[in-house]
């Protein structure tokens, strides 16, 4: 047990979340290994986004939000008082459902995370831009117009800019909340390919409504249902041989 904890990148223990009176996450415990891809699936409103946002404390600003339990990253409780939430978010990046680039140039979008850390060294910034855009598989498409507004790009390109922006601050965990749901199949394929490549360096958690996508990109799948973690196991295992009837019903599309 002790040994296992030491290798876990993330360890959630008995997490409960309330929005005012509503109890939306019910006693969820799970752990994730470093450099793995975990997919969260489950019907709309079951709490996937809420749980995901607990990992980088994005819910902190929501009025009425309350959480109990322990969320450990590299063994450290991220909800401890002394934890600097800004530092946490540099380590735990997030990509949102709808591409949300800043109304600035591509270049400025990518280095925003560095700028706010006070890094202004031109060569460092240039290197970061190229590295991040390459990692996000969009360098070739935009390398000639880095000063163009990011808003002028297509949705799929915007989303990869958002991924590059997240990679630029060198997080160790990347949270993705339905990153491809607003994109066309080709862009989606690119993002999935990207996830495969990023896996060697990052621990990735992805929320998706697309079973095939979960099957393609993830090592493990967590199935949530009305705030509870119903089943959490290896991807193949969960899809081929689900232990719970609820899971079986969900993945075969019997409710949704």
């Amino acid at each position: 047990m002790v040994k296992e904890m030491a290798t876990d990148k993330l360890n959630a223990k008995n997490i409960n979340v309330f929005y005012g009176q509503a109890h939306v996450i019910k006693d969820v415990s799970m752990s994730m290994e470093a450099n793995s891809v975990t997919a969260f699936i489950g019907p709309s409103g079951c709490g996937k986004s809420t749980f995901l946002r607990c990992i980088n404390r994005m819910n902190d600003y929501i009025d009425g939000f309350r959480m109990t339990g322990k969320m450990l990253i590299d063994g450290q409780d991220i909800y401890k008082k002394k934890v600097e939430v800004e530092a946490l978010r540099k380590d735990v990046g997030m990509v949102f459902q709808k591409p949300n680039p800043f109304p600035k140039s591509i270049y400025e979008n990518v280095i925003y995370g560095l700028r706010i850390q006070g890094i202004n060294n031109k060569s460092v910034l240039d290197e970061t831009v190229e590295r991040s855009l390459r990692q996000a598989a969009i360098w070739d498409e935009v390398k000639d117009d880095l000063n163009k507004s990011a808003l002028s790009l297509s949705g799929g390109q915007q989303q990869r800019i958002c991924i590059a922006r997240t990679l630029a601050v060198e997080p160790s965990i990347i949270l993705m909340d339905e990153p491809a749901s607003a994109l066309d199949p080709i862009s989606t394929a690119k993002i999935e390919e990207l996830i495969h490549e990023l896996k060697s360096k990052y621990t990735i958690i992805i929320v998706t409504h697309n079973m095939q996508q979960a099957g393609r990109v993830s090592d493990k799948v967590a199935f949530f249902y009305i705030g509870e973690l119903i089943e959490y196991s290896e991807t193949k295992e969960l899809f081929i041989n689900p232990k719970e009837e609820l899971t079986q019903n969900y993945i075969t599309g019997r409710f949704g």
Binding site: N56, E86, R165
Partner: peptide, 14 residues
């Protein structure tokens, strides 16, 4: 839009 604020927070901005 709220999404712009969230994007900024998520990158570690105060």
């Amino acid at each position: 839009p709220k999404t712009i604020r969230e994007a900024s927070y998520a990158l570690g901005a105060t």
